[in-house]
């Protein structure tokens, strides 16, 4: 699929595995789906806690500016990061949030799924919430196949956690599949403006 810039922002707090999820996403697109990819991040001095943001830009062409300009998708894994980083959306941009951790969203095109709860139920660990969310992101991203996500995940995570992570990814995809996209507005802009 030919694409100029497809931009995804992932955010949460340090220790939620945001950067790892962004790297797996980037490798799925860059190594396994063959696109040019740029992955960047910003974080504070904390290894745990604090705000954390990572961005992935995917393109069929060489990427000039490595950071996100206009978002196609964003993931917010807690309320603080949702409040801080939810900007620069495209009209049809999609926000994914962990419904257990984010109450308020500043846009109407929102997919709210309980990633942490799903992680606990499917993989037995809250910590796998990042991989559940990755599955959902992958499902809604038109550039990524299930296979490329699975390959990238398998190549990145330690051998002993592969099974657990694979379950989490599948559970994320499954939850996303069940979500009714028709329930969302097509655009976050008013209808008349969109037609121009």
């Amino acid at each position: 699929m030919d694409v100029d810039r497809f931009e995804i922002r992932l955010s949460g707090s340090g220790g939620q595995g945001i950067i790892l999820a962004s790297i797996i996403l980037a490798e799925a697109a860059g190594i396994f789906a063959g696109y040019n990819v740029s992955q960047t991040q910003s974080y504070g001095p904390e290894a745990r806690g604090g705000r954390c943001k990572a961005e992935v830009v995917i393109s069929s062409k060489p990427i000039d500016y490595p950071k996100a300009v206009q978002l196609d998708m964003m993931l917010a894994m807690n309320q603080a990061s949702c409040d801080s980083y939810c900007f620069d959306f495209k009209a049809n941009g999609l926000l994914l949030v962990d419904s257990g951790l984010v109450d308020q969203t500043p846009t109407s095109r929102v997919v709210a799924l309980p990633f942490t709860k799903i992680a606990r139920e499917s993989a037995g660990r809250d910590l796998a919430a990042n991989i559940v969310a990755l599955g959902a992101l992958g499902h809604f991203c038109p550039l990524l196949s299930r296979k490329s996500l699975e390959s990238a995940l398998s190549a990145r995570v330690p051998q002993e956690t592969k099974k657990m992570n694979s379950k989490a990814l599948k559970a994320g995809i499954k939850a996303a599949e069940k979500f009714d996209m028709d329930s969302l507005p097509r655009s976050i802009l008013p209808e008349e403006e969109e037609e121009i």
């Binding site: 980037a26 696109y35 040019n36 991040q41 490595p66």
Partner: peptide, 9 residues
């Protein structure tokens, strides 16, 4: 810092 920590294919 941007170049150093950016990942690219």
């Amino acid at each position: 810092e941007v170049v150093a920590h950016s990942r690219e294919t």
